[in-house]
Amino acid sequence: MQRSRGWASGWNAARIAVAALILVAVGTQLSSSVAEALARGRDVATVIANFLSFFTILSNVSSAIMIAWLGVRFFSRGRRREVDPPALATALALVSTYMIVTGVVYNMLLRGIPLQPETVPWTNKIMHVWGPLFLLLDVLLGPTRRRLPWSAAFAAAIFPIVWIVYTLLRAPLITNPTTGVPYWYPYPFLDPNTGGWGSVAVYIVVIAVAIVALAVGVVAIGRARGIRMPIDPTPATRPVH
């Protein structure tokens, strides 16, 4: 589906605005977490490292950088409705998938968990609800999406696998700065001390399958509505013999 230049301009302006809002939310929450750590005498370096180890934070920051990049690129190139370059298109599809997963997992598994005292409620909404919703809308409505090969969907599993391995290796080495227990897991469903390794394995498999399935959906939508740029009507100049 072709979109007008006005539509593309409006959507890319929205990308920049949402990216700024996400980054402000992340920064505000980090400041609140550090302030709480200082007030309670917790190890600030550990608190910051833990904060940056949440899949939510990583997906929000990466998606904000990506949509801001695309928005700035659009305006810096004279608002030309060019199809996204392959590398940027692939990265956008991946971060879109991760943000949608963040929204789904939060609303299905984590919404009922009481917020920590340092959690700023509006930042929680931005990172878990409104940010993921915008990235979903970007998949459905965003201009200049490129048609990607199906292999891009399977590449979406790489980062979550690396993150899970990192999380499970690091967790037993970290003392929880809030409770003092000798481990720290970012999410309850990854903690074997709660439900055992069998439960953790089931959650990992289900989430991995869901990520690939969502990535397939993102790529499928992109292939269905990938923009074909109009052909330049100016006839090519033939060489004179």
Rank of each mutant, 00 (worst) to 15 (best):
M1W: 15
R3W: 02
S4A: 02
R5Y: 09
W7E: 09
G10Q: 02
A14K: 06
R15F: 14
V18T: 05
V18E: 11
V18W: 05
A19H: 06
L21W: 10
L23C: 06
A25S: 14
A25K: 06
A25H: 06
G27M: 00
Q29T: 02
Q29P: 01
L30Y: 10
S31T: 11
S32R: 01
V34Q: 01
A35M: 07
E36F: 12
A37I: 01
A39D: 13
R40V: 00
A45N: 14
T46A: 12
I48C: 00
I48R: 07
N50C: 03
F51C: 11
L52I: 12
S53F: 07
F55E: 05
T56H: 06
I57G: 05
I57M: 13
I57F: 05
L58K: 06
L58P: 06
S59K: 07
N60A: 08
S62D: 02
I67D: 03
W69N: 11
R73C: 08
F74D: 02
F75T: 13
F75R: 03
F75L: 13
S76F: 12
R77A: 07
R77W: 14
G78H: 05
R79E: 11
R79C: 10
R80P: 01
E82L: 10
E82H: 06
D84M: 09
A87Q: 01
A91F: 09
L94Y: 04
V95C: 06
V95Q: 04
S96I: 04
I100Y: 10
V105F: 07
N107L: 08
M108R: 15
L109S: 15
P117C: 09
P117D: 00
T119R: 04
W122I: 13
K125P: 07
M127D: 14
L136K: 01
L136I: 14
L137Q: 02
L137H: 01
L137A: 12
P143M: 03
T144C: 15
R145M: 04
L148Q: 00
L148M: 00
P149F: 00
S151G: 06
A153P: 00
A157P: 04
I158H: 08
I161N: 13
I161R: 06
V162I: 15
V162P: 09
W163L: 10
I164N: 08
I164L: 15
T167I: 07
L169I: 04
A171Q: 02
T175C: 01
V181E: 10
P182M: 07
Y183N: 11
W184M: 14
W184Y: 15
Y185P: 08
P186D: 11
Y187T: 04
D191Q: 02
D191N: 09
P192W: 07
G195E: 14
G196C: 06
W197K: 01
G198C: 02
S199M: 14
V200C: 09
I204W: 06
V205C: 05
I207D: 02
A208P: 11
A210F: 12
V216I: 11
A220V: 10
I221F: 13
R223C: 08
R223W: 12
R225N: 05
R228F: 12
R228Y: 15
M229Y: 09
I231N: 13
T234E: 11
R238M: 15
H241F: 15
